[in-house]
Design a protein around this nucleic acid. Structure first.
Lengths: 207, 207
DNA sequence: ACCTGAACACCGTTCAAGT
DNA sequence: ACCTGAACACCGTTCAAGT
């Protein structure tokens, strides 16, 4: 009834808040309308439909991702630092990765980082297709890792009794390994070492 | 009406067929019932609800994944071959990865491969936490890569005009790189080189 | 130009009633 | 033990009608 005029921006803002708090699945047109205090159908006038609404949300968040400054002395270290910064940015928007992923906007999301990466890969002495390969490898690795990682956090109880199996089979031969595999994964650390290994391998391997 | 008795197995089989053809989203209880020629509610008696149905489907497919035999002369090559085999198996069930992922069953899915990997990492001379780290790194990398890759196939038109941007900015400095980044990704090749680089890096980097 | 309610075609799930 | 239809509480979306 007594409402100020609804704007597209207000719709996006409220929708973003809902996604932030409860994830994309919880964003229904009806709940959004209730939150806004309008009729469901009003939303359609401003954003078209649910799909374009989500598109706009993703667009917005991607545009807000800050620039990335590489740190470190060697090219390898600088490349790895870009990967780590990228992961940090993505994790700051917990629902973004999955949404970008579903919408096929991975490339777009990567553009700023890509530019930086190209610069560093050049500094490492690579050119042309080799350089492109390294950039792509980092891209895939970061997104892939964040996807896997995010998912583990959502479903904390990983498959029942992994420990049990390992306890029996490996404990006597390599108990330290059995114990390590039974522990929850320290993804922060895993990412750091994996990226370092990957970058090292990529820079030295002939293509 | 004139139907043979409905069995849990028949429900799973038909559901699996629907998922295979149209993906998990297309598996609705009502469509499934229509396909089976029963009332929607009959399905509930056999499988509980949609969620447990999907769980059972995943369970089933994971159990069917074949054993993995490493190939190659060096440990590094054998580890990489396991990663490639794993990727191949996952790609043979296009909807499996996402479903496993959503259900938090990644560990379970990885158990058979994990055993093989541990063996090979041992052969490479690593023990304890170091060895575990390498196994985990491979796990994350393979699942992550397949997730990213699968998704690109689903939404083929990646963000508009990536080429344009690169064409302008980099073309003069490194035209070969600009061209390479504009081309669609050869994921098969990317995976092979990335895994090789990662394994190389992991085996030689001190932890 | 913007907003509305009614209506349509879908969902998953529960439940009392049948055999 | 197994199957059923009716009913409930949800969805996204369209559309004619309002101002």
């Amino acid at each position: 009834m007594a409402r100020t005029a609804l704007t597209r921006d207000e719709v996006l803002e409220t929708a973003a808040a809902l996604v932030r708090q409860h994830g994309p699945a919880a964003l229904t047109m009806r709940k959004l309308a209730a939150e806004l205090g309008t009729a469901v159908t009003s939303i359609y006038w401003h954003v078209g439909n649910r799909e374009s609404l989500l598109d706009a949300l993703v667009e917005r968040t991607v545009a807000d991702l800050g620039a990335i400054r590489p740190r470190g002395a060697t090219p390898a270290e600088r490349i790895a630092s870009v990967a780590r910064a990228l992961r940090r940015d993505l994790r700051a928007h917990p629902h973004l990765v999955a949404m970008v992923h579903e919408r096929g906007l991975t490339e777009r999301m990567f553009l700023p980082a890509q530019r930086v990466l190209v610069h560093e890969v050049h500094a490492a002495g690579l050119r042309g297709a080799r350089a492109a390969g390294v950039v792509r490898a980092i891209q895939f690795h970061v997104v892939g890792h964040v996807l896997v990682e995010r998912n583990r956090e959502r479903s904390p109880a990983q498959s029942p009794a992994e420990e049990d199996l390992w306890a029996v089979e490996t404990a006597d031969r390599d108990p330290a390994l059995a114990r390590a595999l039974a522990r929850p994964v320290d993804t922060e650390r895993l990412f750091a070492t994996t990226v370092r290994a990957l970058v090292t391998g990529l820079l030295e391997t002939a293509d």
